[in-house]
């Protein structure tokens, strides 16, 4: 089974629009691993068949009646999560040190649901996506669960491809989305900020030994910058699998809840060419 991740470093470069268009072009299990701001479901319009609660790290809870206000927990907590003998849940990393040091056993670690994994059917086939409850932590673990579920479904349904829509950035949920995949498609944009971010995500892919290719979106908003991306990639032997022009039809399609392949014939042909390249790269491996 092969896994392709679509990532970018910078947000808003078009990851989700591109993943959504791939859904029209191949039979795969699709996943949205941008668990704190998922968008792919807005285009794929899933019919949810299973909603699995996800329990992340536990959170400390201080029993006020038993607490003797000695301050041992506050002193021991490395995350500044305890102030005035109360736990700031967003800061708690669930390590359990406070419970360990409490002399009167006034602290308990409580399980709680941090989010959900949704298993769904769409007009393109199976789709798995995670959704973190707003303000909850440990999204990397939820990403791992989404990917594990997608793998199970792919095996059961005899599909040999999983396509992963990754979040922006290079930290925990991105690493969880990217590690162990067969190919990273990096969506770049010809702006100074996006080039900087592309360079960092390419380094992350290299660090985790994932082969990366680049697709330049909105390439015509600054052709000089596009040349810079092309030069950068050529120097490093990174293939550019396609260049997509800026076109308002992408936003129009999104507003109508469609992908660009469904919405516009000309852009559909371009996406088919790009997908063909991705497919070739994957089968070469």
């Amino acid at each position: 089974m092969k896994q392709i991740v679509v990532a970018s470093g910078k947000g808003g470069t078009g990851k989700t629009s591109i993943v959504a268009s791939f859904a029209s072009l191949t039979k795969a299990v699709f996943t949205d691993c941008d668990v704190d701001a998922p968008n792919l479901h807005l285009i794929l319009k899933p019919e949810i068949i299973e909603k699995i609660p996800y329990e992340g790290m536990e959170v400390a809870e201080i029993n006020e009646e038993e607490c003797i206000k000695c301050g041992a927990c506050q002193k021991a907590c490395r995350f500044g999560a305890i102030e005035n003998f109360m736990v700031t849940e967003e800061k708690c990393e669930g390590c359990g040190v406070c419970m360990l040091v409490c002399p009167v056993n006034a602290i308990e670690m409580k399980k709680r649901v941090n989010g959900y994994v949704h298993v769904a059917n769409t007009r393109f086939g199976e789709f798995v996506y995670g959704l973190l409850i707003p303000g909850e932590e440990a999204s990397g673990k939820l990403v791992a669960l989404v990917r594990q579920k997608a793998k199970e479904i792919a095996e059961r349904k005899d599909k040999n491809l999983i396509i992963i829509d990754a979040p922006a950035g290079i930290g925990c949920p991105v690493i969880a989305s990217l590690s162990g995949t067969d190919l990273a498609v990096i969506i770049a944009e010809p702006t100074m900020a996006a080039i900087h971010d592309m360079e960092r995500i390419l380094e992350v892919a290299e660090h985790f030994k994932v082969k990366a290719v680049v697709c330049i979106n909105k390439y015509d908003i600054n052709e000089e910058m596009t040349k810079k991306i092309e030069e950068y990639c050529r120097e490093r032997g990174i293939e550019i699998i396609g260049k997509i022009p800026f076109n308002r039809k992408f936003t129009e399609a999104m507003v109508k809840g469609k992908n660009i392949v469904e919405y516009d014939k000309e852009l559909a042909d371009l996406m088919k060419e790009i997908w063909k390249k991705v497919e070739d790269m994957i089968s070469q491996k």
Partner: peptide, 28 residues
């Protein structure tokens, strides 16, 4: 702040006096 609604974004806004939420007029 970083994008998203996860721990890094929350860590950033913690203790702020005001938050400006930037968005674009699309379904996403």
């Amino acid at each position: 702040a970083p994008p998203g609604n996860g721990c890094p974004a929350i860590e950033t806004m913690h203790g702020s006096d005001f938050v400006i939420l930037v968005t674009e007029p699309t379904p996403f």
